[in-house]
Design a protein around this nucleic acid. Structure first.
Length: 567
DNA sequence: GCCGTTTTCGGCCCGACTGTTTTCAGTCG
C-alpha cells in the first residue's frame, strides 16, 4: 500500500502548489479529494492500475488517472516537476505558519518576493509587510513569533509514517539468508508519537555480513559500516527522507544489543546505575532481553515504559502493570460515515470493523454546527438511526452497532444537541474542534462544562493537538483530570497518528487517578481502523492496563456502563 | 479536475473568528 500513500502525498503537494499559484479552487479541491481517496483506498492502487480501473475510484478521473499511470510506470510526475519550477517549493514551509494560508503567502511572494522563512523574517523585522493590505503591525509581530515557534518545534516523523516503513524493511531483511533475526528497536519500538529515525537490530554470527546483505537489499551497498568490538552499525537516509540506523550483533549478545538499541537514554542510564551498584557490567552479553534484565534481578520491562520514570522501581517491587494489548480491544467507539465527513457507508464501516475482529462499533458522526464536516441535524440523526438499525439487522449478532455522535463543545461550553436529543443516543463523544486558542481559564471551563454534562461518555481528543507542531489547547490539566475522575467520564486516547491525544504522559496521570480511558481511531474510512495500534502503544506508554480501557470490556459490560451514565 | 434521476456544461460542503477593515478577505477546522 506504499504507493497509495506516496501518490496521496504527491497529489496533496500538487494541490498546495496550485493554491500558491492561484489556480482554480475547484481544481485544487479535486486534487485534494483524489489524495484523500488514495489514502483511504483499501486495495493497492497498483491492482486497479493493472486492470485499468483507476477511474473507478471516486474523485479520480482521466487526468489524475494519467498522472498515476505516469508515476507508476516511470517513478516521476512531470506535472509536479514543472509546478515546482513555477512556484518556489520553499513557500510550502511558509504556509505551515499559523495564520498564513496559501492566499497570503502568494501575496507575500508576488508583492515582496518572499520565497522562504528567512526572507519572510527579514521583511517582518524591517516592517515591510504592513505595506500590503491585509497585513499590519500586529501581523508582523505574530509572524515573527510564529517563525520562532516553528524553528523550535518538536522535530521528528510521525509514528504512523515511520512505523509502517520500518515494518516493511523488517519483512525484506527477514527474508535474507545472511540475517538470522531482525527486530524493531529505538523510539518506534517504544511507541513514541514522534520519532527521529528508524532503528533496526539484526543478528548474525558475522554481524558485518548481515549488515552488508541488508544494505545491498536496501539498494544502498555503498553505505560505510562502523565496526565496534561487539557489534557493527550503519546509518543512511531512505528515499522517503527517513534516517535509518542499522546495527548488528552476534546471537550470544542479541539481548544486550536489543536493550541498548531500544533505549530510552534515561532508562539505560538507570540500568547503568543499577549495574554499577551491583558491581556488574551493563554491557555484559546476553542472548535475550529477559536474561539481560534477570541478571539485574529484574523482570523483563516492556519497551513502551522504558522511559526512566519509575519503571525500574516498579519492576523491583513486582509492580509492573499488565499493559493493555492490541488484541484486547473489542470495541471502536468513535467513527464516522458518509452521513458526515466519513468516506464510507455505515455498512462498509461495520463490515470493515467486523473483518478486524471488533465486536462493537459506534457510529459517531459530527453534530450540526460543524458545517464543514456536514454535521447532522437532529432530524438527520434520527434518519441515521434507521439505517444503523437496518445494517444491524443485515449483519445479525456478529457485531453490535451503537448510534452515537461526536458532539461539538461550543464556544460557551454547551453541547451542540439539546439534552433530549443526546438522551436518544447510545453513546456521546464530546469534542473541541473550534476556538482552540481561547485563554486557559476560558477553554478549561468550557471543557469542564462538557465533562459535567451527564449525557457525555467520552471526551474526544481532549487537547486538540495536531502533530508534529500544532500544540493543543492551553488547558488546566489538573482541573480536567479532577473533573473527569469525579464525573466518571472517559478520556479518549485518539489513535490517529497526527493526534495521539491524550499524550502518554497525561495517560499516565489519568491512570494513576483511576480515570477511564477509551482508545478510539476516529476512523473516517475502513483503512483508518488500522491506526488502533498507535493508540494502544500510547496507552502502554501511559501504563494503562486493559481494565483502564473501556474498549477492552466485553460488550455487555460496556453497555451496562454506557446506560448507567444516563441521568 | 471531477461529476451527472441537474449527464458533456456548470456546478462543486459551511460558519466562526481574526485582524484589518469601514464592509471584508483569509484562515481554520
Amino acid at each position: 500500500m506504499a504507493d497509495n500513500l506516496t501518490l496521496a502525498a504527491l497529489f496533496k503537494r500538487i494541490a498546495l502548489l496550485l493554491e500558491l499559484k492561484g489556480e482554480n479552487p475547484y481544481k485544487i479541491r479535486a486534487y485534494r479529494r483524489a489524495a484523500e481517496a488514495l489514502a483511504a483506498l483499501e486495495t493497492p492502487v497498483t491492482d486497479l492500475w493493472a486492470t485499468q480501473r483507476l477511474t473507478d475510484i471516486p474523485g479520480i478521473g482521466d487526468a489524475i488517472a494519467k498522472k498515476i499511470d505516469e508515476y507508476l510506470r516511470t517513478g516521476r510526475l512531470t506535472f509536479l516537476e514543472r509546478l515546482e519550477e513555477e512556484v518556489p517549493p520553499s513557500l510550502v514551509e511558509v504556509t505551515q505558519l499559523p495564520g498564513l494560508g496559501p492566499k497570503k503567502v502568494r501575496r507575500l511572494w508576488q508583492a515582496l518576493g518572499i520565497t522562504d522563512l528567512n526572507s519572510l523574517e527579514s521583511a517582518a523585522r524591517e516592517g515591510r509587510l504592513r505595506a500590503l493590505s491585509g497585513f499590519g503591525v500586529k501581523s508582523e509581530a505574530r509572524i515573527l513569533e510564529a517563525i520562532q515557534a516553528y524553528r523550535a518545534r518538536p522535530r521528528g516523523f510521525l509514528l504512523g509514517d515511520a512505523r509502517p516503513v520500518a515494518l516493511r524493511l523488517l519483512a525484506i531483511l527477514r527474508d535474507l539468508p545472511q540475517i538470522a533475526r531482525a527486530e524493531l528497536a529505538g523510539s518506534i519500538r517504544r511507541g513514541k508519537a514522534l520519532v527521529g529515525d528508524i532503528d533496526l537490530l539484526l543478528t548474525s554470527p558475522v554481524p558485518e555480513q548481515a549488515l552488508q546483505a541488508a544494505l545491498k537489499a536496501l539498494q544502498q551497498p555503498e553505505t560505510p559500516l562502523t565496526t565496534h568490538p561487539t557489534y557493527a552499525e550503519a546509518a543512511l537516509t531512505l528515499p522517503e527522507g527517513l534516517p535509518l540506523h542499522l546495527s548488528a550483533a552476534p546471537p550470544n549478545r542479541f539481548g544486550t544489543a536489543w536493550v541498548l538499541s531500544t533505549g530510552s537514554a534515561a532508562h539505560l542510564n538507570d540500568l547503568q546505575q543499577l549495574a554499577a551498584a551491583r558491581g556488574q557490567d551493563p554491557e555484559a552479553p546476553f542472548a535475550t532481553e529477559r536474561e539481560y534484565y534477570a541478571a539485574l534481578n529484574l523482570p523483563w520491562i516492556p519497551p513502551e515504559i522504558r522511559q526512566g520514570n519509575g519503571e525500574i522501581e516498579a519492576a523491583q517491587h513486582g509492580r509492573l502493570p499488565a499493559l493493555v494489548t492490541a488484541e484486547a480491544i473489542q470495541a471502536e467507539l468513535h467513527s464516522h460515515s458518509t452521513w458526515s465527513d466519513g468516506r464510507a457507508s455505515i455498512r462498509a464501516m461495520a463490515e470493515a470493523a467486523l473483518a478486524r475482529g471488533l465486536r462493537v462499533l459506534a457510529i459517531t458522526d459530527h453534530s450540526q454546527s460543524l458545517g464543514v464536516a456536514h454535521g447532522l441535524t437532529p432530524e438527520r440523526l434520527r434518519a441515521q438511526r434507521e439505517e444503523i438499525r437496518q445494517v444491524q439487522a443485515a449483519l445479525g449478532g456478529q457485531i453490535l452497532l451503537l448510534q452515537g455522535a461526536e458532539v461539538e463543545i461550543l464556544a460557551d461550553g454547551s453541547l451542540d444537541y439539546p439534552d433530549e436529543v443526546l438522551a436518544e443516543l447510545d453513546i456521546v463523544v464530546a469534542s473541541l474542534h473550534t476556538s482552540l486558542r481561547q485563554p486557559r481559564e476560558r477553554i478549561t471551563q468550557r471543557l469542564l462544562k462538557a465533562i459535567r454534562n451527564p449525557h457525555v461518555h467520552i471526551i474526544g481528543h481532549p487537547s486538540g493537538r495536531l502533530l508534529p507542531h500544532r500544540a493543543g489547547a492551553d488547558l488546566d490539566w489538573e482541573a480536567v483530570l479532577t473533573a473527569a475522575a469525579e464525573n466518571g467520564v472517559a478520556l479518549e486516547i485518539n489513535a490517529h497518528p497526527r493526534r495521539l491525544d491524550l499524550d502518554a504522559s497525561l495517560v499516565r496521570q489519568a491512570v494513576a487517578r483511576g480515570i477511564l480511558l477509551a482508545i478510539n481511531t476516529d476512523a473516517h474510512s475502513p483503512a483508518d481502523f488500522d491506526h488502533r495500534i498507535y493508540g494502544v502503544l500510547t496507552g502502554r506508554r501511559g501504563w494503562a492496563t486493559a481494565d483502564d480501557i473501556i474498549n477492552t470490556w466485553p460488550p455487555a459490560r460496556l453497555q451496562t456502563w454506557l446506560q448507567s451514565r444516563r441521568p
